[in-house]
Structures are given as C-alpha cells and as structure tokens.
Write a protein that binds this DNA or RNA. Structure first.
Lengths: 316, 316
DNA sequence: CTGTTAGCGCCTTCAC
DNA sequence: GTGAAGGCGCTAACAG
C-alpha cells in the first residue's frame, strides 16, 4: 500500500487489484484522508481553476457573465477564481496578472486598461479570453466582442423611425471602452440621419446616476433619451416620473443590456439585449478549446438585439 | 544568487544586500520570472484563497454577498473561489468539500443541506462561516444569522397596522430554510393578531414566479400581499398592473431583501432590508479572525429592517 | 499489478 | 548576508 497505489486508487485508475483498492478506500475513509489539491496541482502542472477578472461585481451584467461562466466550467471540473478590480486600470492590470498566475487560464471582462497595456500584457496571460471588448487587432487573443456601436445605432434608428429628431445620450463611465463604442455608433447614426441632434450628458452606470440626470432630461426639449445602460434607464424612469414627465407620451426612453428587470419596469423598457449569461458560457467553451489546444485565438462578434417595449413611442 | 536568495528577495525580506537584491530583481524582470503560487502554497501550507459556496449565483442577494466578501478579502491578499451549487443538497455537500479542500477557509451561503448533514460536515470544513442560516445550536461554527422570522413578523405587523386583516404570503422555494423561517414568523404574527388570516400560495424566487401568481392574487379578497422576496414582488407588481389592480389602493405589496431596484419599482416597494453587502464583508472579518485564531466560532444575529415605501398603504 | 524513485517550485532551517 | 539541503504531498516513469 504505497503512496503510488493510494494515488492510483484516489484517481480511479483501474490498474489496481480490487481488494487492495477496497482496503485503500477504507483506510482513506477511516482517516478521512483527502488528497491535497495543492500538491496535486504542483505535480500535475495545472490547477483546474480559471480566473475571471471583472471590473464591477455589483453590475448585474457582469454577474450574469460570471454565472454563465461558472456554470459552464463546473461540469468540466473547473472552478472559478473571481477578481473584482474596481475602476482603477492600474489595479486591474496587477490583479489580472496575479489572478492568472494562480490559475490555468483567464477571462477578462471589459477591461478599463488601454489597448497599449493590453497588448503588452495579454501575450503572457494566455490562454485568455477577452469579453465585451474588441482588443486591437494586433493582439493575438481570443475575444467575444459585443458590437456596442451597432447597438447604439440601432437605438437611434428606432427612435428616429418613431419620429424623434432631438435625442439625448446619457453617457456611461468615461473610462469604459464600451461607452466610447456607443458614442461611435451614435455618431454614425447621426451622420446617416440628417438633421437630428444627439446631445450627450454625463451619466454614469448606476440607478442613482440615472435619477440624478432626470431633472436635466426633463427640462430639455429632447423627445427621446438613450441611456448607457438599463440601470440608468431605470433611474431615469423613476426620476422622470417624479418630474411629471410621462413615458413614452412625453419622452421615450431606451436602455442597454436587457437586464432581467427591464421587462418589469414601468413602463417596460425598450432596450438592446446582450446575452450575458450565454456569453459567459461561450467564454468557457473558448477557454476550454484553448486549454486543449483544439483551437487558436480568434474573435467572435455579437450583435445586441433591439427589444421594443413600451418605454419608447411615437414623437409628438 | 541561489534560490534561497531569490526567494528572500521576492518576498521582500530585508536581509539581502541591496546590490544583490537589485540584480535578482533585474534578472527576474528580464526572464519575466514569477514565483509559482502553487508551489508557494504547497510549501507555505496556505493558498490565500477562500471558497464561497452559493446556491444560486443568479440571485441578486447572493451576488451582493459575494461582492461584499470579495472586496473585503482583496486588501488582505485573499482571493475568492466561487462554487455555484444549484438546488441539489447532494451536489452542495460535495461541492463544499471539494472547494474547501482547495482553499484556506469556507463561506457557506444559505445552504440547502439538512441540519444533520451540516452537523457532520462542518467540523471538517472549518474554518468556516455560515451565512443566512442559523445552524443547529449544537454545531460549533461561526454564523451570521438573519432573523427572517422577525422580518416576516414585522411585515405582518406593518400591514395589520394599516388595517389589513386578510393577507397572502407568496411563498419561496420549499427547500429554502429562509422560507421556512419566514413562515414561522408569519405564524407567530397570526397568533398575536387575532382574527387575521394569512393564506399561503406557492411562489418561487424569481420575477416570473411573481407574475405567474398575480392572477390568483388579483382574484383573491385579500387586501395585502407579502412576497418571499423583492424579485417576486416586482413580478407581482407588474402582473397586478396587468390585471388592473392598483397598488397600494386596491392591494398592498411587501417584499423582502431591499434589492437596489426596490426603491425604483412602481410604486416603490415596501420591503425588509437585509444588508447583504455588509454581511459579505462581515463574513470575511469573521473568517479572517478564525484564520488568525483570534476568535472562536460564534453566531451573530441580524435583524431585517422594515423600509416603508409606497407599495403598502391603508386598507379600505 | 505494485512499489521505488525522482521531481513539480518554493520556503525555511541550518551552517558558513 | 548567503548558500546548501530538506521537505511540503502528490503523480509519473520505471522496475520488479
């Protein structure tokens, strides 16, 4: 009953005599012995753990990504190490490196870090998948890119079709690359629709940011508002109601993300759906393929989908 | 420049000649060498990682716990390993053991497992903290218990004060201990307030569960509804609106949890606030104390706090 | 089929 | 202040 034998039994190798295996199991039970997964990891050279780097764990979208990812990993025996980085790009980088160092692979969700930093960093972080952001094409890394620009365009198209000519964009965090992409889409749409205006006002990403700008929006002559995300749209709806502005009769509101509660807003929120849970699951598939060397890095684009509900209506 | 020296430098020991230390750092930089955290863990006997076991990662409350916990760990250099167990108590147990095995400590959030199983399991899982559930008093484990029963009582008291006599409780998941506790509180309140009725109907835990029971609630003669959680209350509000029931004029609605969006519901939701983020952070403090052997296991009770908003009003 | 040996990469006495 | 040696617990290759 050597250590090797024990190891074989614990790993379910069938090359051990049934009797002996029984005895080993009994002994293990008796002493409630459990193999040290750390030693195992060292010996095997893999930890069966994958790191997820997330900028804001308090954001429902990221939570859904995490959920999709975690649930996809589990059946393959992989666990997830979460790293919440906060807004600071410096911290983000350091954390990513450290977390990756403990794991076999890395999922980076919509980093704040600049393209330059990413370019330098990602090669040594692989296998890795970047989600929610299109890294500069010169970086050879897998990514699941969400076409936020197209989403923003679709929002404007929708509102213009309804007859709106004067729009407001309640912007997201300055550092957020996804906010910049939305702005690119907005600009494209503005060029296509001659004569419309899109006024940008500083928003944020949270409920209270939305509520905070409600007064400004209410006072404006714009007939439609496009918010960086659903959370702000929610805040906006509440704030507008307080200011006596009716939605969609007086102003239309469009959000982004399609959080679970979007359909339960009052009125139900028109928004651009992004399949965050599915993206999380897909991210694992890609990472798994990378780990198994079944596949090379590649980028995979996703289109947000316009979901029309009652918060957007014809302009008067 | 032996391995020992490198080790000392990498760990910031000051017992190394400045020049040599410089050289080591330069070399490390050059070869972009990073100490293997796995080997380090094996040698040190600790992983600087703590496991969190969560039954439903898609539940906003648990996400907030996770966030509070993760953010509290990080400054101490600890990372979090998440394990999403789903509803199956069997899976839960296996997962808890496995996850704990990779880490230095464990946070179990509202386990489904029976008291008996927990009693047998927890001793070998320590250091551990149980959150959101009061383990049988015979188990010597730290816990942060939420007094759901008291919360439910407070909800009923509030509604009775408003003049309601006929109430409905839209129940949570059968397996959930917190649902059972709410029911205990409901019963206590019913005994105190002679003549009131509390009818229970099967609900669930999600938005659509709330919406699903709206018809039944609308048709009932009850003038007030208490929902297992805010998510269901949200669904209920939407469903009731569809059925032409006005809240709070026709029926009052009370939720549980005080999710971020509760105040943004239409009408804003009266609910019982539970400080999930703070609880997550507190859980880390307890675990940290346990790890440092500064403290013995103990249980710490939390009272949900009634937050009165517009969804509850006088009975007519 | 089973035991022996070496090594995964680091940290920590212990001598120098 | 620095290097040498042993050990953390496990798995894989190699004999027997």
């Amino acid at each position: 009953m050597s250590r090797a034998t024990v190891s074989r039994v614990m790993n379910g190798r069938d090359s051990v005599d049934a009797d002996l295996a029984e005895r080993v199991k009994a002994a293990a039970q008796e002493l409630d012995y459990r193999p040290s997964s750390v030693a195992r990891s060292l010996s095997l050279g893999r930890t069966q753990t994958v790191a997820v780097m997330i900028p804001e764990l308090d954001n429902p979208m990221f939570q859904r990504v995490l959920q999709g990812f975690t649930d996809a990993c589990a059946p393959k025996g992989y666990r997830v190490l979460v790293a919440n980085t906060g807004d600071d790009p410096e911290v983000e980088v350091a954390t990513a490196v450290e977390a990756r160092n403990r794991c076999d692979a890395l999922l980076m969700v919509a980093p704040r870090a600049s393209d330059e930093v990413l370019q330098e960093l990602l090669p040594q972080l692989q296998p890795a998948v970047v989600l929610g952001r299109q890294p500069s094409s010169r970086i050879d890394v897998s990514s699941l890119a969400i076409d936020y620009a197209a989403g923003a365009e679709a929002a404007v198209d929708h509102l213009v079709e309804l007859g709106h000519r004067e729009l407001i964009y309640v912007a997201g965090p300055e550092l957020s690359s996804s906010n910049r992409e939305r702005i690119v889409g907005l600009e494209r749409a503005r060029q296509r629709h001659r004569g419309i205006t899109v006024t940008q006002i500083a928003g944020g990403a949270h409920l209270d940011d939305g509520r905070r700008v409600a007064a400004e929006v209410a006072a404006s002559s714009a007939s439609a508002v496009f918010a960086y995300n659903d959370l702000m749209a929610f805040g906006l709806l509440a704030g507008l109601a307080e200011h006596g502005v009716r939605v969609p009769e007086d102003k239309s509101v469009v959000g982004f993300d399609d959080i679970d509660l979007a359909g339960y807003a009052n009125p139900p929120l028109t928004t651009l759906a992004v399949p965050h849970t599915a993206l999380g699951a897909r991210a694992w598939e890609r990472l798994d393929a990378l780990l198994a060397k079944r596949e090379d890095p590649q980028t995979e684009p996703y289109q947000p989908e316009l979901v029309i509900r009652a918060s957007s209506g014809p302009a008067h």
